[in-house]
């Protein structure tokens, strides 16, 4: 069966998305992408430096990479909208990860401002992937506003604390008819696998790989963990929950009996 992730009609061949911050050397980035198998890579527009070629992160992305600029640094919807437009004018394509953060302590996203930004950008034809605090009603509004996927946090950015929001993410996976991509907070490959087993469509990882002693090896480990978690989801209890059974294998005989009883 074809299990390729589809985002707004685009086939995405890997369920591991990568962030590009905090790396000690841009030369690591193509190696990390290759080792992990990732296809979607997010880059903060604030760090794209066109003035100095060797400082331009975009030069380090292998061919076939889907670039997803992000609005890091935006404190309001208006700022996020401006960053998205600048990115598109600069040739970064139509994908954008909306990230609106006005709290530097916990770096928790502002769902209200994010919804406002999605409404505008989706109308302008962007493929909008919002980073959000996992809240069902906010996610519904983001879907209604035109989001192409929903990216709830597993734990605050950069904390490497794992899938602390498990229960809330599970609600989104059950209720929202869009890919749910767990973004932020995953610190270990096993935690990425956990999110995938839960039914996440993909995960986005940055700090855990960038600050590992061996980022390339860690990238490979995350790539494998994501595949393992996905297969576990497809093979295991997730599959039985996803498809309603027409009859109950163990108690079906009771119903049959009832049917023949006058």
């Amino acid at each position: 069966m074809d299990d390729t992730l589809l985002i707004r009609g685009t086939r995405v061949e890997s369920r591991l998305f990568l962030g590009t911050g905090k790396f000690a050397d841009y030369n690591l980035i193509p190696r990390v992408i290759k080792a992990s198998g990732a296809k979607v890579v997010t880059v903060a527009l604030r760090r794209v430096d066109y003035a100095t070629p060797e400082e331009n992160m975009l030069q380090y992305l292998p061919e076939g990479t889907i670039l997803m600029p992000n609005t890091s640094g935006a404190r309001t919807a208006a700022e996020a909208i401006r960053i998205a437009r600048i990115a598109r004018e600069a040739g970064c394509g139509d994908w954008v990860k909306i990230e609106v953060i006005s709290d530097q302590k916990y770096l928790l996203p502002d769902n209200f401002e994010t919804i406002k930004a999605i409404e505008v950008l989706a109308r302008e034809g962007f493929v909008v992937l919002p980073y959000m605090s996992p809240d069902l009603m906010a996610a519904k509004r983001m879907a209604d506003a035109g989001a192409a996927a929903i990216m709830p946090l597993g734990a605050p950015i950069g904390t490497n604390r794992g899938l602390k929001t498990r229960e809330l993410v599970q609600v989104l996976i059950s209720e929202i008819n869009l890919p749910i991509i767990v973004d932020a907070g995953l610190g270990r490959p096993s935690e990425a696998a956990e999110a995938m087993e839960l039914g996440a469509a993909a995960v986005l990882v940055n700090t855990a790989i960038a600050t590992a002693d061996d980022p390339v090896l860690m990238a490979e480990a995350f790539g494998l963990a994501v595949q393992a978690g996905r297969k576990g989801y497809l093979a295991g209890p997730g599959a039985t929950q996803r498809f309603a059974e027409a009859s109950s294998p163990l108690t079906g005989f009771l119903r049959n009996e009832a049917e023949v009883t006058p």
Binding site: F23, R46, A51, T52, E55, G73, I83, I86
Partner: peptide
């Protein structure tokens, strides 16, 4: 370490 020349827009 990565010497960063640009971190704002």
């Amino acid at each position: 370490y990565k010497p960063t020349l640009k971190d704002w827009h």
